[in-house]
């Protein structure tokens, strides 16, 4: 589903590259944790998959397409097959829960009819039934992240990217969010999640790719956190 082949990314030709000769493959339906200290290149991987950045060298395939030489006008269609959630939720404060999720469908040209069936479905999936009319400021952090996840997966993408999705949440709420992401993964969505949260990684017992200074230190099936070990 996601393949990196010898990917190097330098933001500045003089400095050390943010990613240095990174290769890995995440199969369809797989759940992969990206771990490592700040500045190790986790976010760069996420941005490369989204094609917000273009690698300095190497090849990247996402959802069956080579994305490095992809023309700009095709990039939006690539992103429709990827859902993304961030640490800071990125909700629209002046729209309620339903409209925040519906916005993602409106702007890719979905009809009102399909929006009115898709949005309630996905809100149920993330456990927000009955809170459609709430505004973001009326929700807890965990609920806001559920809205963000609902928005990311409402269009049924094959891939879910999560960049520190529990970074702003307390442990109990983090676990609830992980349950939601796990449920989405079990429905067949490939998940690539960058995180600092060792406890979650250890509990989930999934594949772990550890990055340090832009290099893959280990890549383990059913791995644990142990950064720098």
């Amino acid at each position: 589903m996601i393949t990196f082949e010898s990917v190097t990314k330098s933001y500045d030709s003089k400095a050390e590259p943010a990613l240095d000769d990174v290769s890995f493959t995440a199969e369809a339906g797989e759940f992969v944790f990206l771990v490592g200290p700040s500045g190790s290149g986790k976010s760069t991987v996420i941005r490369l998959v989204l094609r917000e950045e273009i690698p300095t060298s190497g090849r990247i395939r996402v959802a069956g397409k080579s994305i490095v030489k992809m023309p700009t006008w095709k990039v939006p269609y690539l992103r429709r097959s990827i859902g993304t959630v961030f640490q800071d939720f990125r909700l629209l404060p002046n729209k309620n829960v339903f409209d925040n999720v519906a916005f993602a469908l409106h702007v890719i040209g979905k009809s009102s009819a399909s929006i009115s069936t898709l949005v309630p479905d996905v809100l149920e999936t993330v456990g927000l039934e009955g809170k459609q009319k709430r505004y973001p400021h009326e929700l807890s952090g965990g609920e806001q992240q559920r809205v963000a996840i609902a928005r990311a997966v409402v269009n049924k993408p094959g891939i879910l990217l999560a960049d520190e999705p529990t970074g702003n949440l307390d442990p109990a709420t983090s676990q609830d969010i992980m349950d939601v992401i796990d449920r989405i993964n079990r429905n067949g969505t490939t998940v690539l999640m960058a995180t600092h949260d060792g406890e979650i990684v250890n509990r989930m017992n999934r594949r772990v790719i550890e990055l340090a200074d832009g290099v893959i230190m280990r890549d383990e099936e059913r791995g644990s956190y142990q950064v720098g070990a």
Partner: peptide
């Protein structure tokens, strides 16, 4: 920029944005 950032993220076309 919030709206347009989300639009880019969810794959709205440039023309639409």
């Amino acid at each position: 920029r919030r709206e347009t950032g989300i639009m880019r993220l969810v794959g709205a076309s440039n023309a639409f944005i």
